[in-house]
Each structure stands twice: as structure tokens, then as C-alpha cells.
Amino acid sequence: MTYLDALQTTLAGEHAALFVVGYLGAQTSQSRSPQLYATLRESYDGHRDRRDRLEDLVREAGGEPVAAGASYELPQVRSEDPTTIAAAGLAVERACGATYGFLVANATGHGRRWAVAAVVDSGLREIDLGGRPRTFPGR
């Protein structure tokens, strides 16, 4: 697998994460669950920034960024139920951590440092969503 392939795979994962996290945010009550809402908002902003950076990296590597899908599978959550929404958000962050771990294995230099920072960010957000600290986030 090439670095460009790993970037494209990670970009595809970010497209899916944005779709799902946006949906989860829309299911969350800002007034009833302000902390969860803030965490999902932060998650959305972070994934959007990483998606944009990945598109730049793909172009720098000589590729055309993979497009977002028209739709993605959504988790089954009960509207405004913080427990199921947080669990679904936790699953998104774990999946992203694993995907970025794959990018770490296929990158070097600055690209690897950036991917490691993304793994750490996803790991921290896992904790915000009720996950437990793990030795190797994304694994």
C-alpha cells in the first residue's frame, strides 16, 4: 500500500465520520445535554479540519481526493438519548483512530507526526464520549 492509498483511505473515513457526527449532533439537545453537544460539535469541527488537510495532502502526493459518498450507514440511536448518542460517537472516534493508525504505519516525517496527533485527538475524544483510556488509541 502506498502513502497516497493510505491518505485516500483515511480521507474516505473522514467523509464518513463527518456525515455520522453531523447526524449525531442533530440528534442531541444542546439544552438537555450541553456537554455531549459540545463534544460532538468539537468532534465535527476537528473532523472537518482533518478532512480539509487530507485533501491537501492527497493533492500534494499527486492524487485527486476521493469524493464523499452520497450517504453513509447511520447508527441506530434514540433521538435525544445521550447514552446511545455518546456510544455511537465513541464508535466513530475509535474507527477514526484505527484508520489514522493505518496512516501512521504508511507515512513518514511530517505526515506521520500529523497522523499521530490525529490518533491522539481521537483517543482523547473517546474519553470525552465515555471510553476508557487505552495504551494504543486506534488499535
Results as ranks from 00 to 15, higher is better:
Leu7Val: 12
Val21Met: 13
Leu24Thr: 10
Leu24Val: 09
Gly25Met: 15
Thr28Gln: 09
Gln30Asn: 14
Ser31Phe: 08
Ser33Thr: 07
Gln35Asn: 11
Ala38Glu: 12
Ala38Asp: 14
Leu40Lys: 03
Glu42Pro: 01
Ser43Met: 08
Tyr44Trp: 12
Asp45Pro: 14
His47Ala: 01
Arg48Asn: 11
Asp49Ser: 10
Asp49Arg: 07
Asp49Pro: 12
Asp56Leu: 12
Val58Gln: 03
Gly63Ala: 02
Glu64Leu: 14
Glu64Asp: 15
Glu64Ala: 05
Pro65Ile: 00
Val66Tyr: 08
Ala67Met: 13
Ala67His: 13
Ala67Gly: 14
Ala68Lys: 14
Ala68Glu: 09
Gly69Cys: 14
Glu73Ile: 15
Leu74Asp: 06
Gln76His: 13
Ser79Trp: 15
Glu80Pro: 12
Thr83Ser: 08
Thr84Gln: 12
Thr84Trp: 08
Ile85Thr: 03
Ile85Lys: 01
Ala86Asn: 01
Ala86Ile: 04
Ala88Gln: 11
Ala88Thr: 01
Gly89His: 00
Leu90Asp: 08
Val92Ile: 14
Val92Glu: 02
Glu93Lys: 09
Ala95Leu: 12
Ala98Arg: 12
Tyr100Ile: 00
Asn106Pro: 06
Gly109Arg: 03
Gly111Asn: 09
Arg112Thr: 05
Arg112Ala: 12
Arg113Ile: 11
Ala115Gly: 07
Ala118Cys: 10
Val120His: 04
Ile127Gln: 05
Ile127Asn: 02
Leu129Cys: 06
